[in-house]
Design a protein around this nucleic acid. Sequence first.
DNA 1: CGTTGGGTTGATCGACCTCAATAAAAGTGG
DNA 2: CCACTTTTATTGAGGTCGATCAACCCAACG
Lengths: 246, 246
Amino acid sequence: MASHSDANLAPLTLCPNNKAATHCEQCRVRSLSLCGALEPDELFELDRLSRPLSLSARETIFEQDELAQNVFNITAGSARLYRLLPDGRRQIVGFALPGDFLGLSLTERNTFSADALTPLTACQFSRQAFSDFVDAKPHVLRKLHQLASHELSMAQEQMVILGRRTAEEKIAAFLIGLRKRWARLSQQSVTIPLPMTRQDIGDFLGLTVETVSRMMTRLAREKALLIVPDGVRLLDVKRIEALAES
Amino acid sequence: MASHSDANLAPLTLCPNNKAATHCEQCRVRSLSLCGALEPDELFELDRLSRPLSLSARETIFEQDELAQNVFNITAGSARLYRLLPDGRRQIVGFALPGDFLGLSLTERNTFSADALTPLTACQFSRQAFSDFVDAKPHVLRKLHQLASHELSMAQEQMVILGRRTAEEKIAAFLIGLRKRWARLSQQSVTIPLPMTRQDIGDFLGLTVETVSRMMTRLAREKALLIVPDGVRLLDVKRIEALAES
DNA sequence: CGTTGGGTTGATCGACCTCAATAAAAGTGG
DNA sequence: CCACTTTTATTGAGGTCGATCAACCCAACG
């Protein structure tokens, strides 16, 4: 349960984390992230502000309620973002994939925790330095706003899923949504990597592990999908899509 | 079920909609909205771009899937934002109060519908004109990003409520959240105006009307709150807050 | 004064949860 | 590489919270 997202990105050089190619120009996910909006000289400037971050699976990126000191741009691997309630209930508010930016919320303190689902690399920036960098460049600020705006749309879509869909529809919508996101990163899209556990999926969809497992095996039994190690392969995309749209 | 939010704002003059005082300087909600970040000359410029909008309760502001032509700044009254599923299920993604800005998502088409819960006034802007105005002013863009970022936090909080809270906790969290928002607009905060129906509350919290009604009457029976016309009065704020935090 | 939309209340049902057992992977240390 | 533990996934049996279905109340309003 670890390495497919790396596999997806393996052949290419990474952002400033890689000593051999210190330049963002080589970055595998640049065009997909904020950095895609930067001019070469800006890219160089940002590169200098960046500190490489490399984590193993399960390591913490940041924790809820602590001061938000840094922002992150994920270059490889994936993460989960979640909120814990005092009694231990957990809601995952999102999964972060390569190219995703963590720290769009401008709150003083983190409103959620984030940790790595797989080995992960990211470009880390001090929030202050990053903020200064962005504030001087309206077109970057605009791009940042676009990203936040997109996140907002995704969150609203997730509200629909959480509030008004059945367990089976939730699973379908989750798979279709994730498929679309993986597709942006790598061409192929029949097999959907699932770096997260069933428990994580449940905590994302407002379900229990058992229900997630039951719904997935049911869809598998009905030949709508095939459960493979660390992922699923969609056999009947139309059917899953129909479930997801409602 | 109509006029309390107006009552809240009655004594003061409104934004550019009021012919007697055409200047945003008089605007009741200016400091709470995007316009609070504007210099006097910018305010004047924006004023000229604005077209007053005045709707009765239930009138449509915009509809999901149609081209997003305009953005809105609500000056009085309240609205509901929702997504309809093909089979008629509805998820309300938010309620808009005076000072709230509609159109933060930069999507080509609206991802949800919006209509007035009460008689409503707003400043309407062509999206293009507004966008041009903003793009030329980094500090306004920054403010806009802050607003979007705040919306994102609220949406994530709502995801926790939808995914991991019981019916009773949902009601409590809804009331506490709404109380906080009203408090920003008007001092008093014991009585919470509820311009929306029980059905609306249910569609916001992922519950049925019946459950909303039952939970509210239960809290009323237990003397935690008092149901008044068009709202509720919190009798035991600590208790409701405890339920809301979990 | 009938009609209509919103709200409350009761009886029953069912989708999903809880609890429990087992199976299958994935470490871990010798 | 093999025992051994730990984590994750699956499956079953039974319970429950909130949904559904239905009746009724009440205020607003033409």
